[in-house]
Design a protein around this nucleic acid. Structure first.
Length: 151
DNA sequence: GCCAACGTTGGC
DNA sequence: GCCAACGTTGGC
């Protein structure tokens, strides 16, 4: 079982949007590191911290889980999509996605500001690599954050 | 293979 | 909306 953090701009797709759906295909990821995490390391039922970026108070807002492992992101083949990639082919896809589903919404979000104030969380990839949209979370970090969510 | 130019992310 | 940090592209 692995733990992850995935960012989304709530104006594009929020935890409430996720809660309304059976699942969501996590398409449009166009960063190789993030792709590799999805393609190579994400397993069924892995748990995900769902993070709202570019919001007034960037925060972890809830939990999702992986319900389908990596498969080629169809938007890379669609010339009308903003995620179209002319260098990708069906036989040699470049971009992958997973499907995720809603698990829970925190009653109170945990802000980035709060996370940055907690010494043992300073090595979170979220903090050391602030522009990565998908990042691994250690079991220790997961446990600590789960405790924060309950207070 | 270097690196300048360019595009994107995301906190503020 | 700004802009620093960083990733990617492409000419040489």
């Amino acid at each position: 079982m692995n733990y992850w953090l995935m960012k989304s701009e709530p104006e594009d797709f929020s935890i409430d949007d996720l809660a309304r759906k059976d699942f969501e295909g996590w398409n449009g990821v166009r960063n190789y590191q993030a792709r590799n995490f999805m393609r190579d390391d994400m397993a069924l039922e892995d748990l995900i911290l769902f993070y709202h970026s570019k919001s007034a108070q960037p925060s972890i807002v809830g939990i999702a889980r992986v319900v389908k492992t990596a498969y080629p992101d169809p938007s890379q083949f669609d010339p009308t999509s903003k995620y179209f990639d002319p260098k990708a082919t069906v036989s040699k896809p470049r971009w992958y996605q997973v499907d995720i589903a809603f698990v829970e919404k925190y009653s109170k979000p945990i802000s980035l500001k709060h996370l940055k104030s907690i010494t043992p969380l300073q090595d979170m990839v979220l903090i050391t690599h602030p522009r990565l949209s998908i990042s691994p979370v250690s079991p220790e970090q997961w446990q600590l954050i789960s405790q924060l969510a309950q207070t």
